[in-house]
Each structure stands twice: as C-alpha cells, then as structure tokens.
Write a protein that binds this DNA or RNA. Sequence first.
DNA 1: ACCTGAACACCGTTCAAGT
DNA 2: ACCTGAACACCGTTCAAGT
Lengths: 204, 204
Amino acid sequence: VPKTRRTSTLTLDAIVEESLNLVRRLGVGGLTMRAVAAELGVTPMAVYYYIADKEDLLRLVVDRVCATTGVLHRRPEETWQESLRKYLVSMWENSRKYPGVSSQMINMPGLGLTQERLEAGLAFFESVGFPPAQAQLSYSFAITYLHGRLSVDAHLSHRADAPHLDGAKAADYVRFGVEAVIKALEQLGAAGPKDAMPIASLSG
Amino acid sequence: VPKTRRTSTLTLDAIVEESLNLVRRLGVGGLTMRAVAAELGVTPMAVYYYIADKEDLLRLVVDRVCATTGVLHRRPEETWQESLRKYLVSMWENSRKYPGVSSQMINMPGLGLTQERLEAGLAFFESVGFPPAQAQLSYSFAITYLHGRLSVDAHLSHRADAPHLDGAKAADYVRFGVEAVIKALEQLGAAGPKDAMPIASLSG
DNA sequence: ACCTGAACACCGTTCAAGT
DNA sequence: ACCTGAACACCGTTCAAGT
C-alpha cells in the first residue's frame, strides 16, 4: 500500500531518508525492507537495485545519523574536556531520536565509525597529549559508554513498563556518565596503562 | 530433526539450558523458538507450555548468565575498588561466552538486573559512602559501560572482518575501561552532581 | 537500466485438536 | 496436564521475467 510517492524515480537518497523516518517513528525494529519499499510505493525488490542487503542499508542509516553530529574536534577557545563533553552530549541528543540505531552501531565493525570520524577522534586525544595507544582506548571507551547509554534509552522510550533502575531521568544518567568519562580520561590519559593494577585471569 | 532427547519429559530447566547452548554456539541470533524445540526433540509449540513468549525465554537466559557471576559484594579484606574490579571483570568473562546476551540485557527493564542484584549493587556503593542517588547513577554507569563493551565483543567474535578500531585486543579495552570506570567513580562518588559542570540543552 | 512477481526458507505465534 | 499439527502473518532474499 503506497503511502507517499515522493519521487517518480527511486533514489538511494530517498531510501535512506525513508529508512530514517521509519526508525524515528517505529524504532529500528520497524525498519524492514518491505516497509521501506511500501512507504516509497514500490516493490520490496526494487530497493535491492540500490543496496546490497539490509546490513548495507543499516550502515547507510548509521552513517547518516552520525553525520548530523560533527566530528570530535578540539576548539582552541575551550578545554578538551569541554570539547569532549559537547561532542558526547550532542551525539547523544542526535542519536536518541533514532531509537535502536546505536545498538546497531555498536555491532558494526569499528563501532560504526567512518574512517574520518575515527581519525578525528584519535587526533583529538593525541593533540591533548595522549599517546596513540591511549588515544585509541580512550576514544573507544567514550563511544562504547555512549552507545550503551543510548541502547538503554531506546528501550525506555519504546516501553511503558516501569524499570526499577529509573528513579532518575535519562538526562541525569547521561550527564553523570559523560562527566564520569571525562574524569576518567583526565586521569588515565596521563598515567598510561602500566600504572593500572593488574587483572587476574584475563584471557587473551 | 531431533538431535539429543535428553529428557523424556520437557522441563523449563532443559529449555533454558538448551537455549544457553545455542547462544554459546551460534550467538543470540541462533536462539530461536524453533531451534530450541528441535534440539530438544519436540514441536515448536511444546516450548510455549513452559514460557509465555520469546521475550520470556530471553529473560530466563539473561538471568541464568548473570547468576554465574556473583552479586556485587564488598569484601572487607580488599578496597571497594578491588571488589568492583573483580566483579566487572568476572561479569565480562562470564557474559562474553554467550555472545549477544548483553545486547539483550541492555534492552531489558532495569538493565536486565534482578531486584536482588540491583539492591546489592546499590548497597555496595552506599556502604562505600555514596549517597543513594549517586549509588544508583554509579552502578548504572558501570553496568552500562560493561554491556556496551560486551556488545562490541559479541560482534568481534562472530565476524572475521577487520575492524579498524581493533589494534588492541578485547582484553586491553576491558582492562582500560574497567580502570576508567573505577577512576571516575572514585572522583564523582565523593563530589556529588552539584560540582559537575553544567551541560547546555539537556532535554528532560 | 530499472523494476515487478512469484517463490523460498525462515521467523514468532494462534488456535484447535489430540492423548 | 502436556504436546502435536496446521495455519497465519510476518521476515530477508533469490531468481526469472518484464519494460
């Protein structure tokens, strides 16, 4: 059942755009090949002329969502803590409009980051004085936490049941989490991994 | 096609056990109602006599996985940092054997934690001197990061492609992450949220 | 080049029926 | 009480065919 035939000819851009609409309205579970096709007034298989498979589509969606937040960038007029905080909060605010997308990101190679975004992130931490290995671990740590938080948010917004760990609001958790990430990196960035206490039985 | 008919009569315990086997072997994507039934030599609908739906089964699987790691407990002979570290690492090691389960946990109410595990976690942080609100935020922060990390691991173990953020091994990321979480809570637990820098445009 | 249509191999689940 | 069997409404995707 075609709802809105927005273009006479199908476009990759239209497919991605409609996918984003579906995710925003129904969450990532509502994004199906068949739903996208129906929404564009086209047969399910028509979409396959423009993309390889659903994983391909998901990658495009993730890229588009990421693109709305700028790259992690060190602004000279502010501390690196402030830059990082703004980046993480902005990424959270943009990503949470598309419930479940971050759960997909976290399952993608390199956390769903493009080469450009990754390099910017590493450059950010190295410019602040982190050695390369630390920069990678630090960036990954921040992004991993953020995606974890977004996964939880995705569920909260879609379910009406009362989770017992939800006395505080999502914003409180993010605020706390972002500050925690920053505080942690303030310390570990300088110290390096040798100072960390050894962990027993870490299987390679 | 029945493979091993381990019990003459179907049991809830056998269902959960077989579900864990499937997750361990095939990841959470391999856990289907039909697969569990087939593995137990039974019709798909037989399983529904013991559980309500798949979400119910997933909850049971998550609970069982969590149960293998003890509750977060403060041991008098060690610092709270050491107790927390051991708990997180142990939970990581146990959970990563069941790829994808933590991605499910993070999507469940209260992070998939049972009332008992939640209360133990809060009691832990309160016993260390965290005010109740801080304890909740702190526990949630630690668990959220851990699940984020486990989600990434789940993907890495199942896919052979080379993610560009994987110069270090999974164990290095966890080691760094756990230390980061601890360092962060050392600082934020005492300080409280009033001392945290304000974040602009946090929508309620 | 671009899209359709029928079909296949999967899901979770309902519902009526068997023992 | 416990389980079967057929069926329904979904998936993603293949493959041959149309224009």
